[in-house]
């Protein structure tokens, strides 16, 4: 497929938005289906741009999701992104023990509980979803649900394709 420098740079921007890059193992693993890969990352970039969640919390939720799905190196990259976006070091270090970390506010805990349960269990209990409803409007609930679902799906592509060292 012939690509213009413009489409290549748009692709690079979409990948960077979701925490990946053109030379990274995930994009390389998807290279045999370039149109689908492009559409997949456009979805992710659109999701990130319009998610509306605090960027540091967004990256912590992504890291939680990826770790729960076994994509540990991707999770580490998003933890680093969370740090660059202002997440406290204690939150990054204690993400997996967030329930006991006093630095996390209740809305943050509600997001992380949801992310972990959705990633691991697929279905989400009324109690956990109710935590989102307590703190976020319907639009934000939908955005958080899609964010977590997207990265769980991405982990289910990256790990089996060998893009998760």
């Amino acid at each position: 497929m012939t690509e213009s420098p413009g489409s290549r740079s748009a692709e690079a921007r979409n990948l960077a938005t979701v925490g990946e890059d053109l030379d990274g193992p995930l994009f390389s693993a998807m290279a045999e289906a370039p149109r689908l890969a492009r559409a997949y990352f456009e979805f992710g970039a659109g999701l990130i741009k319009s998610c509306g969640l605090d960027p540091a919390l967004r990256e912590l939720a992504i890291a939680m999701t990826l770790a729960a799905c076994g994509a540990q190196s991707m999770a580490r990259r998003h933890l680093a992104l969370a740090g660059s976006l202002g997440a406290d070091a204690a939150k990054i270090e204690r993400l997996q023990d967030f329930e006991d970390e006093p630095g996390f506010a209740e809305p943050e805990k509600a997001v992380l509980r949801f992310a972990r349960e959705s990633a691991l269990g697929v279905s989400v209990s009324a109690e956990i979803y109710g935590g989102l409803q307590d703190w976020f409007d319907v639009r934000s609930q939908a955005a958080i649900a899609l964010l977590v679902a997207y990265y769980a799906g991405l982990a289910h592509i990256a790990v089996p394709l060998g893009a998760e060292p």
């Binding site: 289906a33 689908l36 959705s118 991405l154």
Partner: peptide
Amino acid sequence: TELALQVGFYNTVVRILGA
């Protein structure tokens, strides 16, 4: 690769439905 993307994407879809 297409199969991998289908299976990954529908692992996204079931989580949306579950949420």
